[in-house]
Simulated assay, not measured.
Amino acid sequence: MNNSSKQGKTTAIVAYFTLVGALIAMSMNMESKNDFARFHTRQAFGLHIMFLGFALFLSYAFNQYAWYGLYIFYLVLWGYGFVGAISEKKQAVPILGPYFQKWFTFIQ
C-alpha cells in the first residue's frame, strides 16, 4: 500500500465517524484530492445528513417503531460503508449511495 492510498483510506475511515468526522475528512482531502477518500466522504456525509433529517422529522411525528427502523436502517448502511472503507473498496451503500454521489458533488 503506497502513501497515497493509505492517506485516502485514513480519510475515508474518518468520514464515517459522525458528521463532524465527515467535515474533517473534507478538509483532509482538500489538497490531495484522493478519489477513494472523496467517494467515501460523499457516502458518509450523505448517511449522516439522511439520518439527521429523518431524526428531525421523527422528533415531531413520534413513533417508537419508526425510530427503531431508522436506527436499524442507518446502522446497516453505515456498517456497509465503513467496511468498504476499511477493505479499500469503492462500493456505494445500497439504495441511496448512487444518489449521494450525484447530490454531493461539491465535496472535492
Results as ranks from 00 to 15, higher is better:
61 A>H: 06
42 R>E: 04
94 P>C: 08
52 L>R: 08
50 M>N: 05
7 Q>W: 11
81 G>E: 04
102 K>V: 10
97 G>V: 07
19 L>S: 03
8 G>T: 11
4 S>I: 15
42 R>D: 06
27 S>Y: 09
31 E>W: 01
3 N>L: 15
72 I>L: 14
18 T>D: 05
59 S>H: 01
80 Y>T: 08
65 Y>M: 15
84 G>H: 06
87 S>Y: 12
77 L>T: 05
64 Q>E: 12
61 A>D: 09
17 F>V: 06
66 A>M: 12
74 Y>A: 11
14 V>A: 07
97 G>P: 04
7 Q>G: 10
26 M>N: 04
94 P>V: 03
28 M>L: 11
68 Y>D: 12
64 Q>P: 07
31 E>S: 12
50 M>F: 10
104 F>K: 03
66 A>W: 10
6 K>D: 10
80 Y>P: 11
18 T>V: 03
40 H>A: 10
8 G>V: 09
1 M>T: 13
32 S>C: 11
9 K>V: 11
11 T>E: 11
78 W>I: 05
35 D>Q: 14
9 K>R: 15
77 L>I: 04
4 S>A: 15
40 H>C: 10
14 V>F: 05
96 L>N: 06
14 V>N: 00
7 Q>D: 11
94 P>M: 05
95 I>Q: 07
59 S>C: 03
86 I>D: 05
4 S>N: 15
20 V>F: 07
78 W>A: 06
80 Y>E: 12
70 L>K: 02
63 N>A: 15
45 F>D: 01
88 E>S: 14
26 M>Q: 01
73 F>P: 07
28 M>H: 02
93 V>W: 03
9 K>H: 12
80 Y>L: 13
23 L>N: 05
67 W>M: 10
17 F>A: 04
97 G>D: 06
16 Y>T: 01
11 T>Q: 09
106 F>K: 01
57 F>H: 05
24 I>S: 01
26 M>Y: 01
50 M>V: 10
49 I>T: 02
56 L>G: 08
104 F>T: 03
99 Y>S: 11
79 G>C: 09
39 F>W: 08
44 A>S: 09
60 Y>H: 01
55 A>R: 03
64 Q>R: 13
107 I>W: 00
38 R>F: 10
20 V>L: 11
91 Q>I: 15
